[in-house]
Amino acid sequence: MPVSALRASGWGAILAILPAAARAEGGMPQFDVSTFPSQIFWLVVSFALLYVLMSWLVLPRIGHTIEAREAKIQSDLDAAQKANDAARVAAEAQRKALAEARGKASATLRQTTDAAAAETTASLAAIGEKLAGKIGEAERRIAEQRAQALAGLSSLAAEIAGSVLGKLVGTVDGTQVAAKVAAAVETARKGTK
């Protein structure tokens, strides 16, 4: 059976079942079969036109725009993420550098202090040594002078004693007197000591 005949009799069947009441009241224009070919013709024409316009012009453009926007948004988000990560890394590096610098500075400070302290100690020691040397020398000199003085004293005493004895007893053996005086001076020194 040809399609058109099938369709025509199909319409007939639908008309028979559906709108009997409506047709009785003067008829629904929707079931006026004579308008069907024209309606279908214009439907096909206008829908085909719309389809061509949509699929060739409108939809590719909108699709392109939306895709471009999505790509842009994604890349912007990625860029923001990357920038944030970079900022985070930089902040981390900065903090590390800061800590390092701080450590270095305190190390330098300690080193300097230690060096200064060592220097001070060394110079103090040198001064002390020098002083000790001077003191030792001074002591030695004093001891020498004292010894000299004492030696002078014993010879003076012997002289004095010899002259005193000479005046008292006449001539005296000088060397004997000197030895005795020296011994006496020695004992006296020991006693005073």
Binding site: N84, R88, A91
Partner: peptide, 16 residues
């Protein structure tokens, strides 16, 4: 936590 880090975290959260 520093101000910068807080800002970075905030941005992270918003991005997510």
């Amino acid at each position: 936590m520093t101000e910068d880090e807080r800002k970075a975290d905030e941005l992270d959260r918003r991005l997510r």
